[in-house]
Simulated assay, not measured.
Amino acid sequence: AVFFMLSDTLLAINKFVSPLPMSQVWVLSTYYAAQILIVRNMLRARPAADPR
């Protein structure tokens, strides 16, 4: 959630406050980090397969 918030904050600052250098890199890297962490957590929380 923090990475999504950071991504949205960077987008807002870039659009409404002042242009950020390399904004696309920062926004996309935080956005992708958030998605990777969500998928990683989902895979770790999967129940183990039943060996029967």
Rank of each mutant, 00 (worst) to 15 (best):
V39H: 11
L37G: 03
I13Y: 03
A45D: 12
L43S: 02
L10G: 04
L10M: 05
M42V: 13
F16P: 02
F3N: 00
A49R: 10
S18E: 00
L11S: 01
V27L: 01
V27A: 07
S29P: 01
P19Q: 14
Q24A: 12
A33D: 10
A34I: 06
L10W: 03
L11C: 02
T9D: 13
S29C: 01
A45F: 12
I38D: 09
A45Y: 08
L20E: 08
I36S: 12
P51F: 12
K15W: 06
D50G: 08
L11Q: 10
M5C: 14
Q24N: 14
L6A: 10
M22T: 03
M42Q: 11
P51T: 12
L11H: 01
P21E: 06
I38N: 00
L20P: 06
T30Y: 00
F16E: 06
R52D: 14
I38L: 03
Y32N: 11
S18R: 10
L11I: 08
I13H: 01
A34V: 04
L11P: 06
P51G: 11
M22N: 15
M5K: 14
L43Q: 02
R46K: 13
A12L: 04
I38A: 06
Q24F: 12
S7W: 01
M22E: 09
D8V: 10
T30D: 00
S7M: 09
Y31E: 14
L28T: 00
A49C: 08
L6E: 02
D8I: 05
M5T: 08
A33R: 14
V39D: 10
V2F: 06
R52I: 13
A12P: 01
F4S: 07
N14H: 15
R40P: 02
L6R: 10
R40G: 15
Y31M: 15
V39T: 14
L37H: 04
I13R: 00
L20Q: 07
A12Q: 03
F16M: 03
R40D: 01
V2D: 01
S7P: 00
P47G: 03
N14D: 15
A45N: 12
A33H: 11
A48Q: 11
V25T: 15
A1Q: 04
D50T: 14
S29N: 02
N14I: 11
L20V: 12
I36C: 13
L10T: 03
A49L: 12
N14R: 11
T9R: 15
W26A: 05
F4W: 06
I36T: 11
V39R: 14
Y32R: 06
S18F: 10
L37V: 08
P21Q: 10
L10Y: 09
M22R: 14
A49T: 07
Q24T: 11
A48R: 13
P21N: 04
M5V: 11
L6I: 06
Y32P: 00
I38W: 02
M22Y: 15
L37T: 05
F3C: 07
M22F: 15
A48K: 14
P19H: 13
S18D: 05
R40N: 05
A1V: 05
W26M: 00
N14T: 09
P19N: 12
R40K: 11
W26I: 02
S23P: 08
F4N: 07
P21V: 09
F4L: 05
P19L: 09
M42R: 13
R46L: 11
A1H: 04
M42G: 01
T9G: 13
V25G: 13
P21M: 05
